[in-house]
Structure formats: C-alpha cells, structure tokens
Design a binder for these strands. Structure first.
Lengths: 344, 344
DNA sequence: CCCTGCTATGACACCGATGTCATGACACCG
DNA sequence: CGGTGTCATGACATCGGTGTCATAGCAGGG
C-alpha cells in the first residue's frame, strides 16, 4: 500500500503538503493540488487510519457489544431475532457520521463483555454501545472513560439507556382494539418476571381503565411455559381455559408475534376462524410473521429501529462532548392495524 | 489512556522490556516480569493496536460488507432476514481467530461497495467478506490485493465463494418426502429467474427421477407474484389450481418457509387440515417460522451458519497465505423432519 | 525602496508500538 | 584466571501520518 511519502515524491512536494490536500486544512496552490491529486489517484493511495489515530487519538471507530449475534444456534429467547434490527439501525447511523462500526458478541456469556471491551480499547474506539436481546436490567459495565450507551437494557448506575416503551405500546394497542368495539379482551403474556411482561401488562390495564372496562383476571394468563429446553410457546391449556369461559373473549392479545403465530395454529386446530370467530393481536411487528400470516396480524411496532437510531445518536453526541439531558429515553412505535382484529 | 512508556517508567524498565512481557517473544527475568505486570494492571494499560499496526502492518481486522443489514425498513426480499445468520457465524469465527470484525453495508446500493472497501482499506483490514442476501451472481469487486471471499454469491472471475447447495438440499428433502410414501408432490417455487429457484427445481426433478416418478408440470407453479410493492407470497390462484387437479397432490413443497407460513393460512381458509388432508414442506429452516408453526414445519436447513463459518475459515486461511484448493464451495444442510408431512 | 502582511510550502518532531543491534552480567570450561 | 557463550536488558530507528514553527515569495503602502 502506497504511503504519503510515495505520493509526495510522485507529486514533487513534501508529505505535509499532501496531508494538506487531503484534509483541506490549509490553502494549497492550484497547480500543486492538481499534481497531488493526480499522484493519489495514480498510486491508489489511502491514508492509514492507524497512523492518523496515533497522532490524533481519534480512531473513527465505534464498538458494539451484543449477545444478539451469537444466538445462531437457534435457541432464540422469548423475543427472538428482531433485536438485530437495532444493530442494523446503529450501523446506518454510525456510517452516516463517517465512523466505522466494530462488532463483537458475548456468545451468551455476559462476563465476556469485559474482555470484548478490552479488545475495543486496544483499537481505541471512541464510543461503545451495548445491545441486549430483550428489555432487561444488566450488570454494570466499566467502560473506563469511553462513552457508553445501552440499548434495550439499563443498569443500576444510570448509564444512558434507550428502552422500548412497552407500557405505552401495549396501552395504545389495547385502546385501539377497544375503539374497534371489543370489550372482552384476553391477554396471553410473555413469561412472568420479564420486564416487558410487567410493563405491557400495566399498559393493558391502563387501557381498560381509561375505557371504564373492569379488569378480569380470568382473561390474563401466561402464554409461555417451560417444558424441557427453554421457554417455547405452549399455550394449549391456557387457550382452552380462555375458550371455556362463560363470557368468551372476542379478541386475544399476545405477548409477541411469535406467540400469535402459534395461536393461529392452535385456533385452526380447534376449528376457530380468525378473525371471524375470534380476533388476534401480537406485539413487536416482526414483519416476517405479521405481514406473512394469513390474515395479516394486528400488532404494536416495538420499533427496534428507532431504538438503534436513538442509541447511535445519543452516543455520537456524547462523543462530540455534549451534555446529556435525560438518562433514559423511551422509544415507542405505532399500532399496526391489520386484518386479524375485527372492526365493530 | 496509558502508554507503554508510562508502564515502563512505573516498572522502572525500558519500553522494550514491557513489549517483551506483553508479547512473550524473548525471555524476561522473573522479578522484572512481575514488576511490569503489576504496572500494567495498575495503569489499566492496553497496547494500542494503531501503533502495533503501523509497525507490523497487521491490523487484526476483517471487513464485512453486506446488503443484509440495511433492509431494516422491512422490505425483506424473498429470502427474508435469515442471511444475518451468515454474519453471526462469521463474527464468531473471526473472533475465535483473535481478529475483530468491522461491518458496513451498502444500504441497498451495490455501487457503494467500492466506497466501503476504501474505508476498510484505510483501516488496513487483512481480509474482506462480501455477504449477499440471497444466492446470486454479483458484479466483480476490486479488493486491490486484499484477500476477498464471497458468501451466498459468486462472480464471473472466480473469486473464492461459498454457496448454499440448493440442488442437493431440495433433492434430499423431496427424496425424504418420497420415502415417507408420497407420490404426488407439488412444488410452489420462488420467483422465476432466481438462481435458488433454478437449482432447487433441478433438485426436485432429480429426486423424482431417482424414484422413477414422472415429472408432471401441472404440479409446479410459482408461489410468488409481483403485486405492487415487491414480491410477496401471493399464492391463492396457484393453490386453487393445484387443489382442483384430478389427481390431487398429497404434499406441497414450498420455495421457502415464509411461503409455507402463508400456505398454512390459505389452507386453513379453505378448511383443509395440515397434515391430515395435505402435507406441507418448506425450505431454509427459518426456525422462528418452522418451529413455531403449528404443526411444526418439515423443511430443508439452508445452513446459513455453515456458509458463514466456511467463508470465515476460507478467508482466514487466505490471510495466512494458504493456497486455495477449490474456488467455489457448496454448503448443505440436513432435512428437518417435523410434523407437517405425513409418514406413510 | 524598505517594511509589513499574507500565502504557499517545507523541515522536524512526535504519536506508541516493535525489530535490530549492542552491551553488561554471569556461568562454565579448559 | 581468561575466554566464550548465554541470558536479560536497553538504545535507537522506524512505521505513516499530522501539529508546530520557520521561511521563501510576493503584493501593497508609505
């Protein structure tokens, strides 16, 4: 690879002048500039970031740590793959800011994060983002002075964090369902103990309250159950209970789209048509599912993309030295109304 | 960030001795080593990769270019999101080799690849991988001396490429279906013109031939059709044709799992039970779909993960200076037999 | 005509590692 | 006891850029 010295010699100028042409940080004579630019093209010269980094201690790198990447063995957690959308959005924002993204994953072992941060430190990344695979609280990380932003998770020491607004999302979805004329609204939740479960349940109850519908505990039940290898949708008993109710629900809201997909199958198995006999709603707007299902699924957009964008932007402003206004930012998404819920 | 000089001063030795302790490339006295290690811990010292790169011109970086990342707007192509598994697998292999992965995406514009490669060149990546979102032929890239491996695509000039073995995969699946007792096997293909469509159709025909079943063109029809914004599963007419046949198929093989998901819905809509009245098979083993669908979907594992691993390993051996045996490598996966196809 | 002020350019040191070579301190051997 | 070899360590140059400062050239004003 050609160096700045090669270019300088070829153009008959000093290396410093070549540097000036590249960085436009000082005036350069017209003819000189042309000669240098010609030499650069001829030699296919690319300035070495390594050398530049040494002098300026600005590497142009952002490090991203995630557990999202390594679940390639298919052992997807409750919220599945779509958190990769967060990574995608971050990539785009970072690239737009002229920086390059380095990624690494913990392989599922949370304590490997420290090791990965050491690697990033060697590369002198200017900022770090940690992306979790679902809304959760994490053990605090020690970025040793490098700006750090958390996406889809938070910690106990108030590190800047971007989180999905599960409460508002579920509330908006249920309110919309109510305005479509439903009154008996069942809710098949994600596993208990998850933060998303807690927040979405609250949103569900708030929506009922706001509409003056009394909360009926018989309509709320967990849609997942452990059986062997991790939580998988296992909803048959819960579903049977709901269907056996005197005052049967007219719609079933699911903790996520995967659960809704499974529910479609279980309902078909019982000869119950969606949405004519019962309506179904999901959560996440995992499009491969929500748009491909037949009928297409009404769901709440979790807006992973918005989370990624917000995280990247927050980090970039931290790198730029901005003061941070709010520590935690909630990102919402619209309700995606499709044909799986009847109107009126 | 502390430098090697800080450590040297703290430990009362020369920088070179610190270097020796870090790299273990020359003997160091026991007491000296201990002093240096203590100083390193105390100062939380991390050697600068940038400085190391300058000296050795080995950056420890691998660049990955993809269009896979940027489809975050949900406009998933026919093969959807799962090509991200390739990225995941590459990440893992690269990390295992002690290198760090940089990623960038073209944002859908293929000609941006050159620009991204220039950025990577500035960082002096030691190798490049290009990942396509579906099996395709691409315009040739000019890596200017840096080793390059293509994943899920190939070019006209014989750049090392790792490809899914669509033909063998479809053949194995259909053979397995035949051995389960099926004779009338319909095939709902991906859009015509795609390489995967061509190869999988060939596999389908080979399997029939091998079993002595004559090929019936009435059983093969395209499952996608353009209607407005891009190809989406739109299978109602094709399905009606298949169901109206005198000698109705007992199983429908789909071009991918998404199509199978859609087919479940369409069949339910017609009151036809899977698999009791008709069996369904997919392709890809997109687990969120294949395992969550009810009944779980029989499908062929496209093995994106294997493609990623092979691509990474190929690149690493190119970086190590190995000679390349075969230019193109086909990666297959097993048939995933689940309950959506009846046995006997 | 000389001085001032500006523009364009170059010389040189430095960022933080590591390869090369030199050297001091011993131990061992005849 | 002197020569030789080994071990541990340090001095110094170097990788490829950029910040600092110096300087040559030239125009304009008094």
């Amino acid at each position: 690879m050609a160096t700045i010295y090669d270019v300088a010699k070829q153009a008959g100028v000093s290396p410093k002048t070549v540097s000036r042409v590249i960085n436009r940080d000082a005036p350069v004579g017209l003819k000189t500039r042309a000669a240098v630019e010609a030499a650069i093209r001829e030699l296919d010269y690319r300035p070495s970031r390594a050398a530049r980094t040494m002098r300026s201690s600005r590497s142009g790198l952002v490090g991203l740590i995630t557990g999202a990447i390594s679940r390639g063995d298919g052992s997807a957690g409750p919220s599945g793959l779509p958190d990769l959308f967060i990574v995608q959005a971050i990539q785009r924002e970072v690239a737009e800011a002229g920086m390059t993204l380095m990624i690494a994953d913990t392989g599922g072992e949370a304590d490997r994060a420290a090791e990965l941060m050491a690697t990033f430190a060697q590369h002198r990344v200017e900022g770090l983002i940690y992306v979790a695979d679902h809304h959760q609280r994490i053990e605090e990380l020690d970025p040793r002075g490098t700006p750090l932003v958390l996406a889809n998770c938070f910690d106990a020491i108030g590190t800047p964090a971007i989180l999905p607004d599960d409460r508002a999302g579920q509330r908006a979805l249920v309110e919309r369902v109510i305005s479509a004329g439903h009154r008996r609204i069942a809710y098949l939740t994600l596993p208990e103990g998850m933060i998303a479960t807690e927040l979405r349940s609250r949103g569900y109850r708030e929506a009922l309250e706001a509409a003056g519908i009394s909360f009926d505990p018989a309509l709320v039940t967990e849609g997942f159950a452990d059986h062997g290898e991790g939580p998988k949708p296992f909803i048959a008993p819960a579903l049977d209970r709901l269907l056996a109710l005197e005052d049967r629900p007219t719609v079933i809201c699911c903790g996520n789209d995967e659960l809704a997909l499974r529910l479609y199958g279980e309902l078909r198995d019982r000869g119950i048509r969606v949405p004519q006999e019962i309506s179904v709603a999901g959560y996440d707007d995992y499009r491969v599912i929500s748009e491909t299902l037949y009928p297409p699924l009404t769901t709440a957009d979790l807006n992973y993309r918005g989370i990624g964008e917000a995280a990247a932007r927050r980090l970039l402003s931290l790198i730029a030295g901005a003061s941070v206004p709010a520590e935690v930012e909630l990102i919402g998404g619209p309700v995606c109304w499709r044909q799986s819920v009847t109107e009126h």
